[in-house]
Computed example of a mutant assay.
Amino acid sequence: MTRRYDYVGPAEIRDQVRDGCSGRRIGGQDDLSRWLDEQPEDERERPFTFVVDVDGALRLAPQRSEHVACAGGGPVLSAGEISFARDGDRWLVAGISNQSTGYCPDVASWAAVEVALDLAGLDHPGAFTHPIVFRRCAMCGQDNIVKDDHFVCAVCESALSE
Rank of each mutant, 00 (worst) to 15 (best):
T2G: 00
R3Q: 15
R4K: 09
D6Q: 10
V8M: 10
G9T: 06
G9F: 10
A11E: 13
E12G: 04
R14P: 00
V17Q: 00
R18W: 04
D19Q: 13
G20F: 08
C21I: 14
R24K: 14
I26G: 04
I26W: 13
Q29Y: 12
L32D: 12
R34T: 13
R34E: 15
W35G: 11
W35F: 15
D37R: 12
Q39F: 05
P40G: 11
R44Y: 08
R46C: 09
P47S: 14
F50A: 05
V51M: 00
A61Y: 02
P62G: 13
P62L: 12
S65C: 13
S65F: 02
S65R: 07
E66A: 15
H67D: 06
H67G: 02
V68P: 02
V68W: 00
C70R: 07
G73E: 13
G73S: 10
G74K: 08
P75V: 02
S78L: 04
I82H: 01
S83C: 01
F84H: 10
F84Q: 03
A85V: 11
A85F: 06
G88S: 09
W91I: 01
I96K: 02
I96E: 01
Q99E: 11
S100A: 14
Y103K: 10
C104M: 10
V107K: 13
S109M: 07
W110K: 05
W110L: 08
E114W: 07
E114K: 14
V115F: 01
L117D: 02
D118Q: 14
G121E: 01
G121W: 04
L122H: 02
G126Q: 04
F128H: 14
V133L: 15
R136T: 15
M139E: 14
M139W: 09
C140T: 08
C140P: 11
G141S: 00
D143C: 03
I145F: 03
I145T: 14
I145S: 02
K147I: 04
D148G: 05
D148P: 04
C153L: 09
V155A: 14
E157N: 14
S158F: 00
A159E: 11
A159W: 05
L160C: 06
